[in-house]
Each structure stands twice: as structure tokens, then as C-alpha cells.
């Protein structure tokens, strides 16, 4: 059987501060296979960002094991792209210079990698704006630019931490469909953290619902649709979509019980 790109085995994470220690993630186990798209939903503060930080190697796990392409996280050659909540384009660099940031840092400013960027720019409609500064772009275009910056390094795994939450509702709907389609089309294995259930269902192969802190896996919902050529937009009108929505919403509602009562 195919080795998963990413495996979590009973992972725990604890934050330490002077005043207290916070068990943030407890006993997390799941697998991400090639071309798979997994979303995480859960009450705020349940450890979703922490989980992505662990995958990215920004935090050392407290206990358990994380395998990337079958190797333990620290000595794996897996390339991980991380898109944060805001686009974080650097205002003093042109769009082009922003997109080459990762290449510059990793000393990969060669013609091969630059041609990837040029192609992404052309494909995703930012070619004419490559010499503009971020402030001259709309929110949706900035988000695309941030995605290209991440994709320029050809990541094996893409991490998205509420990537659309800074956008207004209308833009958000378009941008999430737009970016969702790009990721699907390129078949990039992705972990998405979101508050928006519709967003999660429309893009994912599986949705993982986390409990409130300490975050544990409450349930894993596999998402399949009977329509052909599934796109984030087309599935929103299917009857299955509503069933998934209700199912996940109920699982989450339990978690917010003391909040709701």
C-alpha cells in the first residue's frame, strides 16, 4: 500500500508559560495521502493552528510521532508550503519580489524556479501586476499572490490556516472557490483549517472535527459527491452537501454546548 505523505501517531502538544501549562492537542492520529484534501474544523482555541505548526516543524511535538513520507519529521525531505491567515505580502516589495521571497531565502533563484513563477503568474491572472506593489491589488488578488508564493516552492503538502478569513463575505466565497479549484486541479495534498463549514465541505475529501481544548479528534467525516467533475462551486447545490453540513454542524454544536446553554 502507498505510504501516506503525512502520518500523525498519538500526537500531544503542551504549551508552557510561567503561569500554567496548556495541553493544546491530545492523542491526534490521522493520515494524509497524496492528492488528498483534509479540512479541520473545531471551536476556536482547540489547537488547529498548533496542529499546522507541528506539521510545518515550527514547534517540536511533546509526545507521539509525526512521519513525513515515512520518515520522522526532522530528517524528511518533504517540502511543506504554509499559507497563513493574512496574505502577509511585504508592502515594500513588488508582487514579483514577494513571490520570489521563498526562492531567495532558499537560494533557488535559478531559471527553472523562476519559470515556475512566471507560469503561475500567467495562469492565475497576475502577470500584468507583477511590477505592482501589494497595496495596489484587491484582497482576492493578494490572496492569489500569497498562494503563488507558496506554490513556487512546489510543496508536497500545503497547509492553509483560515486563509480566507480576512476577506469580506462576497470576496471570500469567490476566492475560496477560486483557490480551491487551483489546488484541486494541481492535485496538491492539503490540510485546511477553517471556520466555514461550507468551505470545508466544498473542498475536502475528509473533514476532521476537533473537540474543544484539549483538541482531540471527535469524528472524521469522509466527503464524497455523486456528481462528475466535482468543483468547490458545483457541489454546493447538491443534496449531499446539506447532509454533510448538518452532520458536521451537529458534531460541532455538541462541542459548543456550554457556550450555547
Amino acid at each position: 500500500m502507498e505510504t501516506p505523505l503525512l502520518e500523525f501517531f498519538n500526537v500531544n502538544y503542551t504549551y508552557h508559560t510561567i503561569s500554567c501549562e496548556t495541553l493544546s492537542l491530545k492523542d491526534i492520529s490521522f493520515k494524509l495521502y497524496k492528492n488528498e484534501f483534509i479540512s479541520f474544523v473545531g471551536p476556536s482555541g482547540c489547537g488547529k493552528t498548533t496542529l499546522l505548526n507541528l506539521v510545518a516543524g515550527l514547534l517540536p511535538i511533546t509526545s507521539g510521532q509525526i512521519l513525513l513520507k515515512g520518515n520522522s519529521g526532522t530528517n524528511s525531505d518533504a517540502n511543506i508550503g504554509y499559507m497563513l491567515q493574512k496574505d502577509h505580502l511585504l508592502e515594500w516589495r513588488t508582487i514579483y519580489k514577494n513571490l520570489t521571497l521563498g526562492l531567495e531565502i532558499q537560494k533557488k533563484l535559478d531559471s527553472y524556479h523562476l519559470s515556475i513563477i512566471d507560469e503561475l503568474l500567467k495562469t492565475y491572472g497576475l502577470w500584468d501586476f507583477r511590477h505592482a506593489y501589494p497595496r495596489q491589488l484587491s484582497g482576492g488578488m493578494r490572496q492569489r499572490a500569497a498562494l503563488i508564493r507558496t506554490l513556487a516552492l512546489s510543496p508536497d503538502i500545503l497547509l492553509l490556516d483560515e486563509p480566507f478569513s480576512a476577506l469580506d463575505y462576497q470576496t471570500r466565497l469567490n476566492v475560496s472557490d477560486d483557490i480551491g479549484s487551483i489546488i484541486k486541479e494541481k492535485g496538491i495534498s492539503t490540510l485546511l483549517v477553517t471556520h466555514d463549514l461550507a468551505e470545508a465541505i466544498s473542498m475536502s475529501d475528509r473533514v476532521i472535527v476537533l473537540t474543544k481544548r484539549p483538541g482531540t479528534i471527535k469524528t472524521i467525516v469522509p466527503i464524497t459527491f455523486s456528481i462528475a467533475n466535482r468543483t468547490p462551486k458545483s457541489v454546493r447545490n447538491t443534496p449531499e452537501f446539506n447532509q454533510y453540513y448538518n452532520k458536521i454542524w451537529e458534531a460541532l454544536y455538541d462541542e459548543n454546548e456550554d457556550f450555547n446553554s
Binding site: 508550503g81 493574512k86 511585504l90 521571497l101 531565502i105 516552492l153
Partner: peptide, 20 residues
């Protein structure tokens, strides 16, 4: 988060200083 961005691109501390 801007510093985190550089870290996610595997930048070192000196690059954090210079780029952000």
C-alpha cells in the same frame, strides 16, 4: 506572523532581520 512567514519558508534569523 511576518516572522513566522520567513520561518515557514525556512529562513534563518539573519534573513528574518534582513527581509522583514
Amino acid at each position: 506572523d511576518k516572522v513566522k512567514l520567513i520561518e515557514t519558508l525556512h529562513g534563518n534569523r539573519f534573513q528574518c532581520l534582513r527581509l522583514v
